[in-house]
Design a protein around this nucleic acid. Structure first.
Lengths: 223, 223
DNA sequence: CTCGACTCAATAACAGTGTTATAGCACTGG
DNA sequence: CCAGTGCTATAACACTGTTATTGAGTCGAG
């Protein structure tokens, strides 16, 4: 049977978690491409092979970091939720996105760097379920769509068209991702980047129908 | 004297150009991180050492690709210039940005991937002039500022505040970079990405004061 | 023309990477 | 208690960027 010697399951999960945490630290320090399996194994006291049995190799590890990153981004988005005040929700949502990116630069670059989604190199069949999942990004994006939709509905009389909400949410995502990406890549001093990000928030919120003074008040409240 | 044996200068420049072109091809195929000095040297018939004498090592080569990339982006921007019709200029400028990114995905990722700007690893003093030049990006950005400024001035009565133009141009850059980055990273099908990019063009141009039908006409003309 | 000096390119070596093959350990099921 | 199996550690392979060394070639001075 394949179930023969599963050993203690919780131990396996703990090891995975420890490796993932350490890997995230290394990615934070050296960037997504500076992650070395040997250094990671040394830092955790394991051998290099443990990573292969637990993740199936480096692509599997990257994949795990990828999904963990989107889970955390989703958590940031949920923490910013504020259904009773749609405008505040919107502002907090946008600021939370940038905060996530700046707090987790390594993960962010790994998620959006455009690597061909970590296709495994070897012929290991056990971890063939990798390579593809853009869908990990969906929950975080759905939260953004939610915020944009309620904000639009709150400031306009008629309920907005769902596809229009999707389109606008994607534009907002693009705006946030672009500014944050430029900031991370070093094309703006942090103070300028913050001011420009605030400009983007103003830009989008007023487009949603919010009054300029209200937006300013929310920005001041979140500062 | 240091001028002793400069050998034939044009030959050196030719070799640099050949290596750069081949390197760009490899970056296009394998991504910025998949560039191998040995493979590059093999493809050009040189030895690995030639890259060291001509570029000072891999960081120097990356740096050369970086500046070449921004020169080409600037060329795309200049080709989109259309001073007599500010709105058309604006639309063409934005579309040219995306076209550049899609035509030169490898270079684009190298330019905006956020690598710590190619600091040389060894203690080679001859190529110490590397690491820093964010300024390579300036000409391309200046062209964008120019387009945004004249478009704003054309659709508004009073001449716009220069700093306001700069801020808006940076927002536009962020919007373009974000959408293109998401597209390159695989977060949108090409057809959806194009439609959303068009949405961004509409969004920004109408914000500049252009009439919706005019923008639509320009988009149709450029299709 | 000849010879020293100097630059550059090619070979090979070093430290590092991901991955794989081989062997050994620790454990469970009978 | 023993066979069998999953997991790990050691070592090897092919590859990377970088550096040291060697050898070939060119230049200018005497």
């Amino acid at each position: 049977m394949t179930q023969a010697a599963t050993r203690d399951e919780p131990n396996r999960e703990d090891q995975r978690a420890r490796l993932l945490a350490a890997a995230e630290g290394l990615v934070r320090k050296h960037g997504p491409d500076g992650l070395s399996l040997r250094e990671l194994a040394r830092a955790c006291g394991f051998s290099t092979m443990a990573i292969y049995t637990l993740f199936g190799g480096k692509p599997g590890l990257m994949q795990a970091l990828y999904t963990a990153g989107f889970a955390r981004l989703h958590a940031y988005a949920l923490a910013a939720e504020h259904r009773e005040a749609p405008l505040r929700w919107m502002v907090r949502q946008m600021l939370a996105y940038r905060r996530f990116a700046l707090d987790n630069t390594g993960l962010y670059r790994l998620m959006f760097g455009g690597e061909k989604r970590f296709a495994p190199a070897g012929r290991n069949t056990r971890f063939a379920s990798l390579a593809v999942p853009v869908e990990d990004a969906y929950p975080a994006f759905a939260a953004l769509v939610d915020a944009v939709g309620t904000c639009l509905a709150h400031h306009h009389a008629a309920a907005p068209d769902p596809s229009e909400v999707q389109d606008l949410a994607f534009l907002v995502w693009g705006q946030m991702h672009g500014l944050v990406g430029l900031e991370i890549a070093g094309y703006a001093e942090p103070v300028d980047a913050l001011a420009r990000y605030h400009n983007a928030v103003r830009f989008i919120c007023t487009h949603c129908g919010a009054a300029a003074v209200e937006v300013e008040a929310e920005l001041a409240a979140e500062a």
